[in-house]
Write a protein that binds this DNA or RNA. Structure first.
Length: 270
DNA sequence: CCGACAACCTGACGGC
DNA sequence: TGCCGTCAGGTTGTCG
């Protein structure tokens, strides 16, 4: 999926098209993605005016003036298409505005999701309520991270991938942040010094901020809504670069943890 | 609590 | 050209 920077790029791309606009029509072209779409989604959204488009972790939130919020998750392959010339097989949800614009949620693998609930209830929704702090906000600092991993023997990579510890990171940015912080992905989380956790927090922020500034990452599926390509992959230090050189001069290695590829440098990451 | 693994689904790619 | 195996940004549940 799209990790935090890609969702942020998506939200920013949707704003010029949807923000402040009245929804003239919403069509679900299939009843489900990862799970069933809300049966009353069309009825709840049609006729409403969009009042805000927000992001929480990897979730995108579309608020309306009727007090409803549509929540989307892009899964592994989801992205929004803006004013598509024609609809394709994987355009599963289509929204038309009164101003004549159209956005389509395209998700080939259908690992994404769409939910709807009262705006006031969003924070209490279990999937959102369980999330840890936003990594770009002040609440995510070395002290908070230390408290979250205290006593945990799991490897730090697993902890950073856990959305309850910190919300929004995925495989790419965890690998990148650990490399930037010079911390081994398999280091036992609860035994990392405060100084190194401080470095890790700074690395997470740095990686995410630079990725957002670049418009996110383009891999097989992700595109920003305006069709432009994220430019961040050219800045990858380790991700997808097995056998190539780390900025430190070492060689990038790959291992598999919990079924996911981990890219790291055995020389500078300890 | 931990981690390995499978499942959910399609598409891209490399090898033969 | 085509078939087959492998891999891919995530989440959730089971099992040991």
């Amino acid at each position: 999926m799209p990790e935090l920077p890609e969702v942020e790029t998506t939200v920013r791309g949707l704003r010029p098209v949807l923000d402040g606009q009245r929804i003239a029509a919403l069509e679900a072209r299939r009843p489900d993605l990862r799970r069933a779409l809300p049966a009353d989604l069309r009825q709840r959204m049609t006729g409403s005016r969009v009042t805000a488009i927000r992001r929480r972790a990897k979730y995108g939130l579309i608020d309306t003036d009727r007090g409803d919020t549509m929540i989307f998750h892009l899964g592994m392959s989801g992205h929004w298409r803006i004013d598509p010339a024609e609809l394709g097989a994987h355009d599963h949800l289509v929204i038309d505005t009164e101003a004549g614009r159209r956005v389509a949620l395209n998700d080939a693998r259908r690992f994404g999701s769409v939910d709807a609930m009262r705006t006031d209830d969003v924070e209490a929704w279990p999937a959102i309520a369980a999330l840890g702090p936003e990594p770009l906000e002040p609440a995510f600092d070395a002290g908070a991270l230390a408290a979250a991993v205290a006593g945990r023997r799991a490897p730090i990579k697993a902890m950073l991938m856990d959305q309850r510890i910190v919300a929004g990171l995925g495989n790419i940015y965890v690998c990148e942040a650990l490399n930037l912080a010079r911390i081994s992905p398999v280091r036992v989380a609860g035994r990392i010094s405060d100084v190194r956790l401080e470095r890790l927090v700074a690395a997470v922020r740095s990686v995410l901020e630079r990725a957002i500034a670049a418009g996110g990452s383009t891999l097989r599926d992700f595109k920003a809504p305006d069709g432009t390509l994220g430019l961040f992959p050219k800045d990858y230090r380790v991700y997808g670069r097995e056998g190539q050189s780390c900025p430190c001069g070492g060689t990038v290695k790959r291992r598999v943890d919990a079924g996911r590829s981990t890219f790291y440098c055995g020389r500078c990451q300890r």
